[in-house]
Structure formats: C-alpha cells, structure tokens
C-alpha cells in the first residue's frame, strides 16, 4: 500500500472478465506452464504478474512484441528465483564475489514499453486516444456523456473508464450507446499502459475511431503513467481552487489541453479565471486552455472540434501509411513478376 496516496496494486479487474483469484491478473493467457502463486502477498502477486507478462512464450499474446522470443523460462514461484535454472546454472554458496552491475534503466520503463505498444496500435488503426485526468468530481463523466452525444453522427467513440470500484461510470457511458469498458483498479490510484492494452483488446475498437480514456480521479499519480494516448487532457472545474495547477504541477505539466469546466457556475463563485489560467501556464507554458460547461453546453463546440481535428490527423496518418504499404506491395509484386 502506498503511504502517500493509499494506492496499491493487486485488485485490478477489467469488466466482463471473470476471474476468481484475488490478484490483479485479468487476462486469459494461454500458459503452457503451471504455477501456484495465489497466496495473495504483495510480493508474490507482483512477481506472478511480471512473470506472466514478460515471459509469456505465447506469440499470439497481444503484447507479444514485448517478449523476447524463445526466452528461457525460469521465473520465480513464491518470490524466489531459481538460479539453478538460469544461464549460470550454478550458484555456489561461499564463492560469491561482490561486483557492480550497471543498470541505467528508467523505473517506469516497462510501463513506457507497454505505452509505446499501445501508441503503435492506435497509429496502425487510425485511432485518436485521449487520456482524461482530473480530481474526483470535476465533471469528467458528465462531460464525456455530453461529448459523445454531440459527436454521435460525426465519429465513432469508445470509452475506457477507470475507477477504483463500481461500473457506474461505464454504465452511464453505455446509456449513450457508445461501447465502454470499466477497469477497476482496486486500490490502485491510476491506470497504467498494461491495463489499457488489455482493455483495448476487449473493446474491439473500430479503425478510425476516437478512444476516450477516463482515468481514475486523481491529480497526482496518473501524471507519471503514459498510456499511449495522443494527449493528456486535464479537467479542472471552477468549483475547485484556481491554484490547483500550482498545487499539482506534475499533472498540469503533463497535459496538453486544460478544460476549465462548470463555467456556468462562475456567477455564483469567487473564482478568478485569468489567474487560474496564468497559474496553469506558469507550470506549462504550452498548455492550451478551453472554458466549457458540460451542463449548459458552453464552449463544447471548440472542444469537439479539437477532438475531431485530432481524429482527422490520426486517420490521415493511417491512410498515408496504408498507401505507402500498398505502393511497396505493388513494387515488390513488380519485382517478383520480373523474376518469375
């Protein structure tokens, strides 16, 4: 359990995905080996998780690009490593010598590798993915519902909903007719790229569509986790303090667009919009800002245009890529014909 925000891992569930063991593995891998790691301790869970996703020899796995092909499988059970099975094939007590091993690896490297795989997948399918982040209660879900309704005839939209518990938000999205999948993070305080990889497998996202990822309501942790999205969009409502960008600078720094929501309430509040925007730009000079109200509809047109422009860009990039591949195929066919 995280001492800072109370987060922990091990209870992640992806909706519609039956699994009755208590730890956070929500994906039906075709494992060839057997292991028993269900004792529920933090360490054992963690390790089982790693093992399953980094050493899965099944090339059909969606994240298979991340696994070293043909890797020898000598993972740990119950948190121990079996060195007798490792490359050294020996571990003689009393003969150890201390040595320094250079590592130089980013701690979030694995998440970033999954994020890169997600990003590649989105690009291949012309999908525009945005990661919506905010504190709880900023109006993210209402804004999403409204946006989906207004985009209905203009784009295909699907949603991944992240919350610690309940599928209430996904239910609200599905009521609009858009496909949605709930990821419950259990005690976790953020979505990570690995969860998104599994969720998009289940969502069956059509090509050239818009994917909205509603992250767990939290202005701290989701800032550090790339999901493979095109942009992080931070939503701040005017019922919060205008100094939130200074209090939670990492999130405002990580975002490309800030939606200042609930502006229909401004007449009743003592909220300084200009100062809020100045605070946000101080943390992130590149930040784009839009003032919106999901309730009154004010400012939503600009937000929807921003989404559609992003989607057009993703589609165009995919189309260009497909054209390029077609040209290459034609060239190779011509070469083949010349030699046959």
């Amino acid at each position: 359990m995280c001492t800072t925000c109370g987060c922990g891992q091990g209870e992640t569930t992806i909706e519609g995905h039956a699994h009755d063991h208590p730890h956070g593995h929500a994906h039906p891998h075709d494992h060839e080996h057997e292991h028993s790691h269900a004792d529920g301790t933090v360490h054992t869970h963690m390790h089982g998780h790693e093992h399953e996703h980094y050493h899965n020899p099944d090339p059909a796995h969606a994240h298979d690009g991340l696994h070293a092909e043909g890797e020898v499988h000598y993972h740990a059970h119950q948190g121990d490593l079996h060195y007798g099975l490792g490359p050294a094939h020996s571990h003689a007590p009393g003969l150890t010598q201390q040595r320094m091993v250079q590592i130089e690896q980013d701690i979030l490297g694995k998440n970033n590798t999954y994020a890169a795989a997600n990003r590649r997948r989105f690009a291949e399918h012309g999908q525009f993915a945005v990661n919506l982040v905010s504190s709880p209660g900023s109006g993210k879900t209402t804004l999403l519902v409204k946006s989906i309704e207004m985009l209905k005839d203009r784009a295909q939209v699907a949603v991944i909903e992240g919350d610690q518990q309940t599928s209430n938000d996904a239910d609200r999205i599905r009521a609009t007719g858009a496909p949605a999948i709930q990821v419950n993070t259990g005690k976790g305080c953020h979505l990570d790229a690995h969860m998104i990889g599994h969720a998009i497998e289940r969502l069956d996202l059509p090509d050239d569509s818009l994917l909205m990822i509603e992250n767990v309501g939290n202005l701290v942790c989701p800032a550090g986790f790339d999901l493979g999205e095109a942009h992080k969009v931070v939503i701040l409502s005017v019922t919060e303090g205008e100094d939130k960008p200074l209090k939670y600078p990492d999130m405002f720094h990580a975002a490309d667009l800030m939606l200042l929501n609930k502006i229909d309430l401004l007449p009743y509040l003592d909220f300084d919009v200009e100062q809020c925007i100045a605070h946000a730009r101080r943390v992130n000079p590149r930040l784009q800002v839009m003032q919106v109200s999901a309730t009154s509809g004010a400012g939503l047109a600009a937000w929807l245009d921003w989404l559609l422009a992003g989607l057009d860009g993703a589609r165009a990039a995919r189309a260009a890529n497909v054209d390029l591949l077609k040209r290459r195929v034609a060239e190779l066919e011509a070469q083949l014909a010349a030699r046959a």
Binding site: Y54, L81, G86, C221
Partner: peptide, 28 residues
Amino acid sequence: MHEMALAEGILGIVEDAARAQGFGRVSE
C-alpha cells in the same frame, strides 16, 4: 506519487537483471 508502483518497477528491473546476469544476491 504512486511509490508502490515505482517500487514494483524497481523490483522488476532488479529481477530481470538477476535473470539475465545470473546473480543471486543484491547488497546495494
């Protein structure tokens, strides 16, 4: 931030290195 996730990331890196390089104990 989410220090637990970071700690797990560190463990993953250490264990990957242990597998790749065949060491059995990390003292620092």
